[in-house]
C-alpha cells in the first residue's frame, strides 16, 4: 500500500544532470511552483504581478508556513503534530492576556518590556506544550497522531477556558511589528519565516541532531541500534515543533491584532498538506525544507492568483486538494508522466 517516494540514495546516478533533476521531487515541485506563478502572472498580469500583491502575499503565508515547518519536523520522525494550532492559539492568548491584563494600556519603552515578557511567555508555553507532547510520544509510547490529537484538544480547551471563547484584544503598538512591520522594506513575517526555514534546514542537514532525526524516521529500530537516544531526540523534536507553533501564534496574534481560541483552525490540515506536498514522507525518514518552502509558495501563488481572478474562496480548497493528490500520484507513479523511465518492478 505504501509506495515509497523515489528517492532511494542507492539507485545508481542517472546519466545526465537533467535526468537527475527530473527524478528529484524538489525539482518537480520547483517546476510546478514556477508554472503556477507563470500561469497566474499570465492570467492577470497587472494585478498578480503588482508590487502590492507580492507584498500582501509575503505578509499572508508565513503564519501557516511556520506551522508547516513544525509539521515537517515531526513528520520526519514518522510522527505528526496535530496540536500545532492549539499551541499557537494558547501561546497567543497567554501573550495577549499579559499585554491586556498586566500591562494595561502602557505605551513606549514600558510597552516594549511588557511585549518582550509576553513573547517569552508565549515561547515558554510552546516549549512546555511541546515537552508534554514529547513525553506522551517518547516516554509513554502513544502514537503521535493520537497523543497530539488529544493534547491539541487540551491546549485549545485551555484557550477556551481562559477566554470563555471570546477574542482578546487591545495591544500596545509594538505588538503590531512582527505581523505588519517591515525591515529594509521587507515584510517582517517573511524575514521571520526565512530565518526559521534556514535555521531548520541547517539543523536538519548540518547537525548530528538532524541526522538522528532522519535516521529515527527511516528506521527507529536501526536508529536505536546505532546508539541514537530515541527518547531524547523525539522529545527535542516535539519541543521544537511546539516552539515553532508558538511563534506562528505570535504572528497570527499580531496580524489579527487579537487572539482567540479558534483562530487558524483551517491551518492544521493546510500545514499537513503543505508538508506532504513539499515531499516530506508522512511515514518519516525523508523531507527537505526547500521542498516545503516551494510547496508553501505554490499554495500561496495559487490562492492569491485565484483571488485575483475572482474565483470563489472555496475553490481554493478544491484546488489544494487536487494539487495534493496530483503531486502524490506523480511521486508514486512517475512513469505515468514520462519524467523518467523506471525499470519494471522486480
Amino acid at each position: 500500500m505504501l509506495e515509497k517516494a523515489n528517492d532511494n540514495p542507492l539507485r545508481p546516478a542517472a546519466p545526465s544532470l537533467f535526468a537527475r533533476l527530473a527524478a528529484s521531487q524538489e525539482a518537480r515541485l520547483a517546476v510546478i511552483t514556477v508554472l503556477v506563478f507563470a500561469l497566474m502572472g499570465a492570467l492577470s498580469p497587472e494585478r498578480f504581478l503588482s508590487v502590492q500583491n507580492i507584498t500582501s502575499m509575503a505578509f499572508q503565508f508565513p503564519e501557516f508556513a511556520i506551522l508547516a515547518l513544525a509539521m515537517t519536523l515531526t513528520m520526519l520522525t514518522g510522527g505528526i503534530d496535530l496540536s500545532v494550532v492549539g499551541i499557537a492559539n494558547l501561546s497567543a492568548i497567554i501573550a495577549a492576556t499579559i499585554l491586556t491584563q498586566l500591562a494595561g494600556g502602557t505605551q513606549g519603552a514600558d510597552a516594549l518590556g511588557w511585549y518582550a515578557l509576553s513573547v517569552a511567555a508565549a515561547l515558554a508555553v510552546g516549549l512546555i506544550a511541546g515537552l508534554f507532547n514529547g513525553l506522551l510520544v517518547a516516554v509513554l509510547g502513544l502514537p503521535a497522531i493520537l497523543a497530539t490529537l488529544g493534547s491539541g484538544l487540551v491546549f485549545s480547551g485551555f484557550a477556551v477556558v481562559l477566554t470563555g471563547g471570546s477574542a482578546v484584544m487591545g495591544f500596545p503598538e509594538v505588538a503590531a511589528f512582527i505581523g505588519n512591520g517591515r525591515m529594509l522594506g521587507i515584510p517582517v513575517p517573511l524575514v521571520l519565516f526565512g530565518l526559521l526555514a534556514a535555521a531548520l534546514a541547517f539543523v536538519l542537514s548540518r547537525t548530528a541532531f538532524g541526522l538522528k532525526v532522519q535516521m529515527l524516521g527511516a528506521n527507529p529500530l536501526a536508529a536505536r541500534f546505532a546508539a541514537v537516544d530515541v527518547t531524547a531526540t523525539l522529545i527535542k523534536v516535539y519541543v521544537g515543533s511546539g516552539v515553532l507553533a508558538s511563534i506562528a501564534g505570535l504572528l497570527i496574534m499580531s496580524r489579527a491584532n487579537s487572539a482567540k481560541a479558534d483562530y487558524g483552525s483551517s491551518y492544521l490540515l493546510l500545514a499537513v498538506l503543505i508538508a506532504v506536498l513539499g515531499g516530506v514522507n508522512p511515514y518519516g525518514g525523508y523531507g527537505r525544507v526547500i521542498g516545503v518552502v516551494l510547496a508553501v509558495l505554490a499554495m500561496q501563488f495559487l490562492s492569491s492568483g485565484l483571488n485575483m481572478l475572482q474565483v470563489s474562496n472555496f475553490s481554493r480548497e478544491l484546488i489544494w486538494g487536487v494539487l495534493l493528490i496530483f503531486v502524490m500520484i506523480v511521486n508514486a507513479r512517475p512513469d505515468l508522466f514520462q519524467f523518467k523511465r523506471r525499470p519494471p518492478a522486480a
Partner: peptide, 27 residues
C-alpha cells in the same frame, strides 16, 4: 480508486479528498 489503484497513503488521500469534496460542493 486513489488508495487501491495508485497505492497512495490513506491519510493523504482522504485529506486531499476532504478538501476536494468540500471545495467542489461550496464552489
Amino acid at each position: 480508486i486513489l488508495i487501491v489503484g495508485f497505492g497512495l497513503p490513506t491519510l493523504i488521500v482522504t485529506l486531499g479528498t476532504l478538501s476536494i469534496f468540500r471545495g467542489f460542493m461550496l464552489t
